[in-house]
Design a binder for these strands. Structure first.
Lengths: 201, 201
DNA sequence: CTGAGATAGGACATAGATGTTCTACTAAGA
DNA sequence: TCTTAGTAGAACATCTATGTCCTATCTCAG
Protein backbone atom coordinates (compact mmCIF):
# COMPACT_ATOMS: atom_id res chain seq x y z
CA UNK A 1 0.00 0.00 0.00
CA UNK A 2 2.63 2.46 1.04
CA UNK A 3 4.54 1.47 -2.08
CA UNK A 4 1.66 2.26 -4.39
CA UNK A 5 0.82 5.59 -2.88
CA UNK A 6 4.49 6.51 -2.89
CA UNK A 7 4.39 6.50 -6.68
CA UNK A 8 1.40 8.80 -6.67
CA UNK A 9 3.05 11.09 -4.20
CA UNK A 10 6.20 11.30 -6.27
CA UNK A 11 4.27 12.00 -9.45
CA UNK A 12 2.26 14.64 -7.68
CA UNK A 13 5.36 16.36 -6.45
CA UNK A 14 6.93 16.23 -9.90
CA UNK A 15 3.83 17.86 -11.33
CA UNK A 16 3.87 20.59 -8.71
CA UNK A 17 7.51 21.38 -9.38
CA UNK A 18 6.90 21.41 -13.12
CA UNK A 19 3.97 23.71 -12.55
CA UNK A 20 6.13 26.11 -10.58
CA UNK A 21 8.81 26.09 -13.24
CA UNK A 22 6.49 26.71 -16.13
CA UNK A 23 3.73 28.84 -14.66
CA UNK A 24 6.02 31.11 -12.67
CA UNK A 25 7.38 32.55 -15.86
CA UNK A 26 4.26 32.18 -17.97
CA UNK A 27 1.09 32.05 -15.87
CA UNK A 28 -1.08 31.46 -18.92
CA UNK A 29 1.00 28.62 -20.30
CA UNK A 30 -1.02 25.65 -21.58
CA UNK A 31 -1.34 22.85 -19.07
CA UNK A 32 0.05 20.54 -21.69
CA UNK A 33 3.33 22.36 -21.30
CA UNK A 34 3.34 21.66 -17.59
CA UNK A 35 2.64 18.01 -18.26
CA UNK A 36 5.42 17.81 -20.82
CA UNK A 37 7.86 19.44 -18.44
CA UNK A 38 6.90 16.87 -15.85
CA UNK A 39 7.38 14.10 -18.40
CA UNK A 40 3.77 13.08 -18.10
CA UNK A 41 0.70 12.91 -20.32
CA UNK A 42 -1.80 15.74 -20.10
CA UNK A 43 -4.47 13.25 -19.08
CA UNK A 44 -2.34 12.24 -16.13
CA UNK A 45 -2.06 15.81 -14.99
CA UNK A 46 -5.82 16.05 -15.05
CA UNK A 47 -6.10 12.93 -12.94
CA UNK A 48 -4.15 14.70 -10.24
CA UNK A 49 -5.57 18.17 -10.65
CA UNK A 50 -8.98 18.38 -12.24
CA UNK A 51 -8.82 22.07 -12.96
CA UNK A 52 -6.25 24.66 -13.73
CA UNK A 53 -7.61 26.29 -10.60
CA UNK A 54 -6.92 23.14 -8.62
CA UNK A 55 -3.34 23.02 -9.83
CA UNK A 56 -2.77 26.66 -8.96
CA UNK A 57 -4.24 26.15 -5.50
CA UNK A 58 -2.13 23.05 -4.88
CA UNK A 59 1.02 24.86 -5.94
CA UNK A 60 0.15 27.79 -3.71
CA UNK A 61 -0.30 25.48 -0.76
CA UNK A 62 2.88 23.60 -1.53
CA UNK A 63 4.98 26.74 -1.81
CA UNK A 64 3.38 28.29 1.26
CA UNK A 65 4.42 25.30 3.32
CA UNK A 66 7.92 25.54 1.94
CA UNK A 67 8.03 29.20 2.80
CA UNK A 68 6.85 28.55 6.34
CA UNK A 69 9.53 25.92 6.73
CA UNK A 70 12.20 28.32 5.54
CA UNK A 71 11.05 30.99 7.97
CA UNK A 72 11.00 28.44 10.78
CA UNK A 73 14.57 27.37 9.99
CA UNK A 74 15.62 31.00 10.15
CA UNK A 75 14.31 31.30 13.71
CA UNK A 76 13.49 34.92 13.17
CA UNK A 77 12.74 35.45 16.85
CA UNK A 78 16.37 35.12 17.89
CA UNK A 79 19.18 37.67 18.02
CA UNK A 80 19.17 41.21 16.73
CA UNK A 81 16.81 42.32 14.00
CA UNK A 82 19.56 42.44 11.42
CA UNK A 83 20.93 39.04 12.37
CA UNK A 84 17.49 37.54 12.02
CA UNK A 85 17.05 39.33 8.73
CA UNK A 86 20.31 37.86 7.50
CA UNK A 87 19.29 34.35 8.45
CA UNK A 88 15.93 34.82 6.82
CA UNK A 89 17.51 35.99 3.56
CA UNK A 90 19.81 32.98 3.50
CA UNK A 91 17.05 30.51 4.15
CA UNK A 92 14.77 32.00 1.53
CA UNK A 93 17.58 31.94 -1.01
CA UNK A 94 17.94 28.25 -0.32
CA UNK A 95 14.40 27.64 -1.53
CA UNK A 96 14.55 30.10 -4.36
CA UNK A 97 13.33 27.72 -7.04
CA UNK A 98 10.14 27.01 -5.17
CA UNK A 99 9.66 30.50 -3.83
CA UNK A 100 9.85 31.76 -7.40
CA UNK A 101 6.15 31.02 -7.44
CA UNK A 102 5.45 34.08 -5.32
CA UNK A 103 7.33 36.29 -7.73
CA UNK A 104 5.22 35.40 -10.71
CA UNK A 105 1.92 33.62 -11.09
CA UNK A 106 1.39 33.32 -7.35
CA UNK A 107 0.81 37.02 -6.88
CA UNK A 108 -2.07 37.39 -9.31
CA UNK A 109 -3.36 33.88 -8.71
CA UNK A 110 -3.87 34.01 -4.97
CA UNK A 111 -5.22 37.51 -5.14
CA UNK A 112 -8.43 35.95 -6.46
CA UNK A 113 -8.75 32.66 -4.61
CA UNK A 114 -7.41 33.47 -1.19
CA UNK A 115 -4.98 31.06 0.47
CA UNK A 116 -7.18 27.91 0.46
CA UNK A 117 -5.85 25.56 3.14
CA UNK A 118 -2.18 26.47 3.29
CA UNK A 119 -2.27 28.37 6.55
CA UNK A 120 -3.73 25.40 8.36
CA UNK A 121 -1.32 22.85 6.94
CA UNK A 122 1.64 25.03 7.80
CA UNK A 123 0.53 25.13 11.40
CA UNK A 124 0.80 28.79 12.21
CA UNK A 125 2.02 29.01 15.80
CA UNK A 126 0.09 31.71 17.53
CA UNK A 127 -3.22 33.15 16.47
CA UNK A 128 -2.59 32.60 12.77
CA UNK A 129 0.22 35.12 12.72
CA UNK A 130 0.57 36.26 9.14
CA UNK A 131 3.91 36.44 7.36
CA UNK A 132 3.87 40.17 6.97
CA UNK A 133 3.36 40.60 10.67
CA UNK A 134 6.30 38.39 11.48
CA UNK A 135 8.57 40.39 9.22
CA UNK A 136 7.12 43.57 10.64
CA UNK A 137 8.07 42.46 14.13
CA UNK A 138 11.52 41.53 12.94
CA UNK A 139 12.06 44.98 11.47
CA UNK A 140 10.58 46.67 14.53
CA UNK A 141 13.03 44.74 16.69
CA UNK A 142 15.84 45.88 14.41
CA UNK A 143 14.70 49.46 14.75
CA UNK A 144 14.65 49.16 18.51
CA UNK A 145 18.03 47.50 18.92
CA UNK A 146 19.54 49.93 16.42
CA UNK A 147 20.65 47.37 13.84
CA UNK A 148 18.20 48.24 11.08
CA UNK A 149 18.04 51.60 9.33
CA UNK A 150 15.18 53.56 10.96
CA UNK A 151 14.53 55.35 7.68
CA UNK A 152 13.28 52.13 6.10
CA UNK A 153 9.77 50.95 6.88
CA UNK A 154 8.93 47.31 7.39
CA UNK A 155 6.78 47.48 4.31
CA UNK A 156 9.67 48.57 2.19
CA UNK A 157 12.07 46.06 3.68
CA UNK A 158 9.64 43.34 2.71
CA UNK A 159 9.39 44.63 -0.84
CA UNK A 160 13.15 44.99 -0.95
CA UNK A 161 13.66 41.42 0.19
CA UNK A 162 11.34 39.92 -2.38
CA UNK A 163 12.55 42.05 -5.24
CA UNK A 164 16.13 41.06 -4.48
CA UNK A 165 15.15 37.43 -4.32
CA UNK A 166 13.53 37.93 -7.68
CA UNK A 167 16.68 39.43 -9.14
CA UNK A 168 18.67 36.64 -7.58
CA UNK A 169 16.49 33.99 -9.11
CA UNK A 170 16.55 35.41 -12.60
CA UNK A 171 20.22 36.21 -12.68
CA UNK A 172 21.21 32.75 -11.59
CA UNK A 173 18.80 31.28 -14.13
CA UNK A 174 20.43 33.28 -16.90
CA UNK A 175 23.44 31.12 -16.26
CA UNK A 176 26.04 33.80 -16.84
CA UNK A 177 26.90 33.93 -13.14
CA UNK A 178 27.44 31.34 -10.45
CA UNK A 179 24.59 30.80 -8.04
CA UNK A 180 27.04 31.39 -5.22
CA UNK A 181 28.24 34.72 -6.59
CA UNK A 182 24.73 35.95 -7.13
CA UNK A 183 23.68 35.05 -3.63
CA UNK A 184 26.76 36.59 -2.10
CA UNK A 185 26.17 39.88 -3.80
CA UNK A 186 22.47 39.82 -3.13
CA UNK A 187 22.99 39.15 0.55
CA UNK A 188 25.66 41.81 0.79
CA UNK A 189 23.45 44.34 -0.99
CA UNK A 190 20.44 43.51 1.14
CA UNK A 191 22.30 43.80 4.40
CA UNK A 192 24.07 47.01 3.42
CA UNK A 193 20.76 48.49 2.36
CA UNK A 194 18.91 47.45 5.50
CA UNK A 195 21.60 47.97 8.10
CA UNK A 196 21.70 51.02 10.30
CA UNK A 197 25.49 50.76 10.23
CA UNK A 198 26.37 49.42 6.77
CA UNK A 199 30.10 49.48 7.43
CA UNK A 200 29.81 46.49 9.75
CA UNK A 201 28.36 44.27 7.04
CA UNK B 1 -4.45 67.46 -41.99
CA UNK B 2 -2.37 67.93 -38.90
CA UNK B 3 -5.64 68.10 -37.00
CA UNK B 4 -6.84 64.78 -38.26
CA UNK B 5 -3.63 62.93 -37.69
CA UNK B 6 -3.35 64.47 -34.25
CA UNK B 7 -6.45 62.56 -33.25
CA UNK B 8 -4.95 59.35 -34.51
CA UNK B 9 -1.71 60.00 -32.72
CA UNK B 10 -3.51 60.67 -29.47
CA UNK B 11 -5.60 57.52 -29.77
CA UNK B 12 -2.53 55.51 -30.59
CA UNK B 13 -0.75 56.80 -27.54
CA UNK B 14 -3.77 56.07 -25.35
CA UNK B 15 -3.81 52.53 -26.64
CA UNK B 16 -0.12 52.06 -25.97
CA UNK B 17 -0.45 53.30 -22.41
CA UNK B 18 -3.49 51.10 -21.83
CA UNK B 19 -1.52 48.19 -23.22
CA UNK B 20 1.31 48.83 -20.79
CA UNK B 21 -1.07 49.07 -17.87
CA UNK B 22 -2.96 45.90 -18.64
CA UNK B 23 -0.35 43.66 -20.22
CA UNK B 24 2.42 44.47 -17.78
CA UNK B 25 0.50 42.76 -15.03
CA UNK B 26 -1.24 40.15 -17.16
CA UNK B 27 0.63 39.44 -20.39
CA UNK B 28 -2.07 37.07 -21.60
CA UNK B 29 -4.94 39.46 -20.95
CA UNK B 30 -7.54 39.60 -23.76
CA UNK B 31 -7.03 42.49 -26.15
CA UNK B 32 -10.58 43.51 -25.43
CA UNK B 33 -9.45 44.39 -21.95
CA UNK B 34 -6.79 46.68 -23.33
CA UNK B 35 -9.34 48.34 -25.57
CA UNK B 36 -11.74 48.80 -22.67
CA UNK B 37 -9.01 50.30 -20.54
CA UNK B 38 -8.28 52.73 -23.35
CA UNK B 39 -11.98 53.56 -23.62
CA UNK B 40 -12.08 52.29 -27.18
CA UNK B 41 -13.80 49.53 -29.13
CA UNK B 42 -11.87 46.36 -29.80
CA UNK B 43 -12.27 46.95 -33.52
CA UNK B 44 -10.54 50.28 -33.14
CA UNK B 45 -7.61 48.69 -31.42
CA UNK B 46 -7.27 46.31 -34.34
CA UNK B 47 -7.28 49.22 -36.76
CA UNK B 48 -4.18 50.53 -35.05
CA UNK B 49 -2.48 47.25 -34.32
CA UNK B 50 -3.44 44.35 -36.55
CA UNK B 51 -1.95 41.69 -34.33
CA UNK B 52 -1.29 41.11 -30.72
CA UNK B 53 2.29 40.79 -31.90
CA UNK B 54 2.09 44.23 -33.48
CA UNK B 55 0.80 45.77 -30.28
CA UNK B 56 3.55 44.15 -28.23
CA UNK B 57 6.19 45.34 -30.66
CA UNK B 58 4.82 48.88 -30.68
CA UNK B 59 4.76 49.00 -26.89
CA UNK B 60 8.30 47.69 -26.76
CA UNK B 61 9.45 50.39 -29.12
CA UNK B 62 7.55 53.07 -27.25
CA UNK B 63 8.95 52.10 -23.88
CA UNK B 64 12.45 51.68 -25.27
CA UNK B 65 12.39 55.25 -26.51
CA UNK B 66 11.15 56.43 -23.14
CA UNK B 67 13.93 54.51 -21.44
CA UNK B 68 16.54 56.04 -23.73
CA UNK B 69 15.20 59.48 -22.97
CA UNK B 70 15.41 58.86 -19.25
CA UNK B 71 18.98 57.66 -19.53
CA UNK B 72 19.84 60.70 -21.63
CA UNK B 73 18.36 63.04 -19.03
CA UNK B 74 20.47 61.37 -16.40
CA UNK B 75 23.68 62.19 -18.33
CA UNK B 76 25.32 59.08 -17.04
CA UNK B 77 28.69 60.15 -18.42
CA UNK B 78 29.12 62.94 -15.89
CA UNK B 79 30.45 62.95 -12.35
CA UNK B 80 31.43 59.98 -10.24
CA UNK B 81 29.98 56.56 -10.86
CA UNK B 82 27.76 56.75 -7.82
CA UNK B 83 26.51 60.24 -8.67
CA UNK B 84 25.61 59.08 -12.14
CA UNK B 85 23.94 56.02 -10.66
CA UNK B 86 21.90 58.22 -8.38
CA UNK B 87 20.73 60.41 -11.26
CA UNK B 88 19.89 57.36 -13.30
CA UNK B 89 17.78 55.89 -10.51
CA UNK B 90 15.87 59.13 -10.10
CA UNK B 91 15.17 59.50 -13.78
CA UNK B 92 14.02 55.92 -14.15
CA UNK B 93 11.72 56.30 -11.17
CA UNK B 94 10.18 59.26 -12.91
CA UNK B 95 9.08 57.04 -15.79
CA UNK B 96 8.12 54.12 -13.63
CA UNK B 97 4.66 53.65 -15.08
CA UNK B 98 5.98 53.20 -18.57
CA UNK B 99 9.10 51.30 -17.59
CA UNK B 100 6.86 48.83 -15.80
CA UNK B 101 6.66 47.17 -19.19
CA UNK B 102 10.18 45.84 -18.82
CA UNK B 103 9.31 44.29 -15.49
CA UNK B 104 6.49 42.17 -16.81
CA UNK B 105 5.38 41.26 -20.30
CA UNK B 106 8.32 43.01 -21.93
CA UNK B 107 10.83 40.48 -20.69
CA UNK B 108 9.22 37.39 -22.13
CA UNK B 109 7.81 39.22 -25.14
CA UNK B 110 11.00 40.70 -26.54
CA UNK B 111 12.93 37.56 -25.82
CA UNK B 112 11.17 36.04 -28.83
CA UNK B 113 10.85 38.90 -31.28
CA UNK B 114 14.06 40.82 -30.78
CA UNK B 115 13.89 44.58 -30.42
CA UNK B 116 12.23 45.37 -33.78
CA UNK B 117 13.00 48.99 -34.67
CA UNK B 118 13.45 50.54 -31.28
CA UNK B 119 17.20 50.89 -31.34
CA UNK B 120 17.06 52.89 -34.53
CA UNK B 121 14.29 55.22 -33.43
CA UNK B 122 16.04 55.90 -30.16
CA UNK B 123 19.10 57.08 -32.05
CA UNK B 124 21.83 55.27 -30.20
CA UNK B 125 24.79 57.62 -30.08
CA UNK B 126 27.92 55.67 -30.79
CA UNK B 127 28.12 52.31 -32.47
CA UNK B 128 24.73 51.20 -31.25
CA UNK B 129 25.89 51.17 -27.66
CA UNK B 130 23.61 48.83 -25.82
CA UNK B 131 22.04 49.74 -22.50
CA UNK B 132 23.84 47.07 -20.53
CA UNK B 133 27.16 48.35 -21.80
CA UNK B 134 26.36 51.87 -20.71
CA UNK B 135 25.51 50.73 -17.23
CA UNK B 136 28.57 48.52 -17.23
CA UNK B 137 30.75 51.52 -17.98
CA UNK B 138 29.01 53.50 -15.28
CA UNK B 139 29.72 50.83 -12.71
CA UNK B 140 33.28 50.40 -13.93
CA UNK B 141 33.81 54.13 -13.49
CA UNK B 142 32.39 53.87 -10.00
CA UNK B 143 34.77 51.03 -9.22
CA UNK B 144 37.72 53.07 -10.48
CA UNK B 145 36.87 56.27 -8.65
CA UNK B 146 36.09 54.32 -5.51
CA UNK B 147 32.46 55.34 -5.13
CA UNK B 148 30.85 52.00 -5.94
CA UNK B 149 31.34 48.84 -3.90
CA UNK B 150 33.96 46.74 -5.71
CA UNK B 151 32.33 43.56 -4.45
CA UNK B 152 29.29 44.18 -6.63
CA UNK B 153 29.47 43.33 -10.32
CA UNK B 154 27.87 45.49 -12.98
CA UNK B 155 25.58 42.61 -13.79
CA UNK B 156 24.30 42.49 -10.26
CA UNK B 157 23.94 46.25 -9.97
CA UNK B 158 21.76 46.16 -13.04
CA UNK B 159 19.58 43.42 -11.61
CA UNK B 160 19.45 45.25 -8.33
CA UNK B 161 18.34 48.45 -10.00
CA UNK B 162 15.53 46.84 -11.92
CA UNK B 163 14.32 44.71 -9.07
CA UNK B 164 14.15 47.76 -6.84
CA UNK B 165 12.28 49.67 -9.50
CA UNK B 166 9.89 46.74 -9.65
CA UNK B 167 9.36 46.83 -5.90
CA UNK B 168 8.93 50.57 -6.09
CA UNK B 169 6.30 50.30 -8.77
CA UNK B 170 4.24 47.66 -7.04
CA UNK B 171 4.40 49.19 -3.62
CA UNK B 172 3.27 52.56 -4.83
CA UNK B 173 0.50 50.90 -6.82
CA UNK B 174 -0.73 49.13 -3.73
CA UNK B 175 -1.66 52.56 -2.49
CA UNK B 176 -0.76 51.99 1.13
CA UNK B 177 2.28 54.24 0.87
CA UNK B 178 2.99 57.60 -0.72
CA UNK B 179 4.85 57.53 -4.00
CA UNK B 180 7.33 59.94 -2.49
CA UNK B 181 8.03 57.76 0.52
CA UNK B 182 8.50 54.68 -1.58
CA UNK B 183 10.94 56.41 -3.89
CA UNK B 184 12.87 57.92 -1.01
CA UNK B 185 13.37 54.59 0.61
CA UNK B 186 14.14 52.85 -2.64
CA UNK B 187 16.74 55.44 -3.57
CA UNK B 188 18.28 55.31 -0.13
CA UNK B 189 18.40 51.54 -0.18
CA UNK B 190 19.86 51.42 -3.66
CA UNK B 191 22.59 53.91 -2.90
CA UNK B 192 23.48 52.33 0.41
CA UNK B 193 23.67 48.95 -1.25
CA UNK B 194 25.77 50.14 -4.18
CA UNK B 195 28.04 52.64 -2.44
CA UNK B 196 31.56 51.79 -1.45
CA UNK B 197 31.10 54.07 1.53
CA UNK B 198 27.43 53.74 2.56
CA UNK B 199 27.79 56.15 5.47
CA UNK B 200 27.99 59.10 3.10
CA UNK B 201 24.60 58.38 1.57
C1' DC C 1 -25.38 70.80 -46.45
C1' DT C 2 -22.14 67.47 -47.89
C1' DG C 3 -18.34 64.34 -47.75
C1' DA C 4 -14.47 62.26 -45.42
C1' DG C 5 -11.99 60.77 -41.27
C1' DA C 6 -12.66 58.23 -37.14
C1' DT C 7 -15.09 55.35 -34.24
C1' DA C 8 -18.70 51.99 -32.09
C1' DG C 9 -20.58 47.73 -32.18
C1' DG C 10 -22.07 43.52 -33.82
C1' DA C 11 -21.54 39.06 -36.81
C1' DC C 12 -18.60 35.60 -38.16
C1' DA C 13 -15.17 31.84 -38.99
C1' DT C 14 -11.06 30.15 -36.89
C1' DA C 15 -7.60 28.54 -33.76
C1' DG C 16 -6.10 27.01 -29.48
C1' DA C 17 -6.78 25.49 -24.72
C1' DT C 18 -9.67 23.01 -21.73
C1' DG C 19 -11.83 19.22 -19.43
C1' DT C 20 -13.83 14.62 -20.25
C1' DT C 21 -13.88 9.97 -21.63
C1' DC C 22 -12.32 5.74 -23.48
C1' DT C 23 -8.98 2.21 -24.79
C1' DA C 24 -4.58 0.07 -24.53
C1' DC C 25 -0.08 -0.61 -22.42
C1' DT C 26 3.19 -1.49 -18.46
C1' DA C 27 4.92 -2.98 -14.17
C1' DA C 28 4.57 -4.58 -9.60
C1' DG C 29 2.15 -7.49 -6.10
C1' DA C 30 -0.87 -11.71 -4.91
C1' DT D 1 0.01 -16.32 -13.94
C1' DC D 2 -3.47 -13.17 -12.98
C1' DT D 3 -4.76 -8.81 -11.15
C1' DT D 4 -4.56 -4.07 -10.37
C1' DA D 5 -2.74 0.64 -9.86
C1' DG D 6 -0.81 3.89 -12.75
C1' DT D 7 -0.15 5.72 -17.05
C1' DA D 8 -0.08 7.02 -22.29
C1' DG D 9 -2.47 8.61 -25.98
C1' DA D 10 -6.13 9.74 -28.82
C1' DA D 11 -10.90 11.41 -29.69
C1' DC D 12 -14.36 14.63 -28.48
C1' DA D 13 -17.42 18.68 -27.35
C1' DT D 14 -16.86 23.15 -25.52
C1' DC D 15 -15.28 27.67 -24.69
C1' DT D 16 -12.72 31.71 -25.18
C1' DA D 17 -9.84 34.89 -27.67
C1' DT D 18 -8.66 36.25 -32.05
C1' DG D 19 -8.75 38.59 -36.38
C1' DT D 20 -11.73 40.07 -40.16
C1' DC D 21 -15.56 42.36 -42.08
C1' DC D 22 -19.52 45.18 -42.35
C1' DT D 23 -22.77 48.84 -41.10
C1' DA D 24 -24.38 52.70 -38.37
C1' DT D 25 -22.93 57.07 -36.05
C1' DC D 26 -20.63 61.10 -35.22
C1' DT D 27 -17.92 65.10 -36.00
C1' DC D 28 -15.40 68.22 -38.15
C1' DA D 29 -13.75 70.79 -42.71
C1' DG D 30 -15.02 72.69 -46.93
Amino acid sequence: MSERTAVRERTRRTLLLAGIEVLSGTPAAPLGEVATRAGVARSTLHRYFSDRKALIAAISDFTAVEYEAAVARASVEDGTGLEAFRRLCLELMESLDILAWWMGAGLTATAQDGESEAAVAAGSDVTDETDEERLRELVARGHDDGTIDPALSAEWVESLLWSNLYACHHLQRSGSVTAFDVRSQALRGLLKAAAADPTRV
